[in-house]
Design a binder for these strands. Structure first.
Lengths: 152, 152
DNA sequence: TACATTTGTATCGCGCACGACATAATTGCG
DNA sequence: CGCAATTATGTCGTGCGCGATACAAATGTA
């Protein structure tokens, strides 16, 4: 393995880091109108599909721990888009549900994915390349999650 | 364009966000030994190639603004791996340089890229796919940076 | 039934990111 | 030259991410 290949992980990891930040920035103008942030948008996407979830269940889908989610959900509760209630079956669990306002935001959010796609797909980057990328990233999520579990 | 394609941007953006965080986590055990964080590692990589740079020059390479870099560089100065000095030519500029300790860290960092690559490349993800991904991400950086400049 | 263990959530502290804004040095232009 | 505009850096406030830790509820087990 030559030196350029040894540096390859840097040559891939840094672009992922940058693109991730740039994507969040690209979403911002649309999310600002809705009064939410990108991580809050992710939470909403999960809740629009599953009206009622515990904090842990949201965390499993977004790969986030409660030390990130708890304050984030508290902010979302304060802005009136979700409600949090202790489960009656299991007093440890907190049930997160959309408020009417939270449900309504789905309408505002609908045109967002297409707008982003129009930025990301062009004459140089084809749709099928994006699909390939998606599959590869999902494989990396598996690998890296497993690696993370081993390291802990 | 059908509904599944409309959701495609979400299906790509979220994995990028997750993989970015998981990669930072994967680097952590190695960087912890060196007493640095992932963003600080990025700064060091730039400085190992260019012994003396202004804050802005580092920011151009890492796509970070001074409101992120200034406090980050201050922490790196406190931990003794870089030095910051006002330029004599232009009193506005701050010259960032590696200390002896900062230069030494390059030796410790050398084996890291290979370790990461061993995690990221396996029987399912081939090296040439990673190279393809790298090119695509760099194109996205261009597109998204341009988009960001337009929006500002 | 006692008691250790596990589970679900939350708090704390620190280090980013970044928008908004401030300040001083330099540059450009009439 | 004089002064507006630009440039380089920095501060402040807010919102993540996450390791370490706390704590109460539930579970398992002798």
């Amino acid at each position: 393995m030559d030196d350029s290949q040894l540096q390859l992980s840097n040559q891939v990891c840094f672009p992922i880091y940058s693109v991730s930040r740039l994507i969040t920035k690209a979403y911002k103008p649309y999310l600002d109108e809705m009064g939410i942030t990108y991580p809050q948008y992710l939470v909403l996407m999960v809740l629009w599909e599953n009206n009622s979830l515990t904090v842990n269940q949201i965390g499993e889908q977004l790969l986030l721990n409660t030390n990130t989610l708890s304050p984030l959900l508290k902010r979302m509760e304060i802005s009136g888009i979700i409600a949090r209630n202790r489960s009656e079956n299991d007093e440890r669990s907190v049930i997160v549900q959309l408020t009417e306002k939270g449900k309504q935001l789905k309408v505002n959010a609908k045109p967002i994915p297409e707008k982003l796609l129009k930025i990301l797909v062009n004459e140089n980057i084809k749709l099928n390349e994006v699909l390939q990328l998606k599959d590869m990233l999902n494989q990396w999520i598996e690998i890296l999650t497993e690696n993370d579990n081993k390291t802990q």
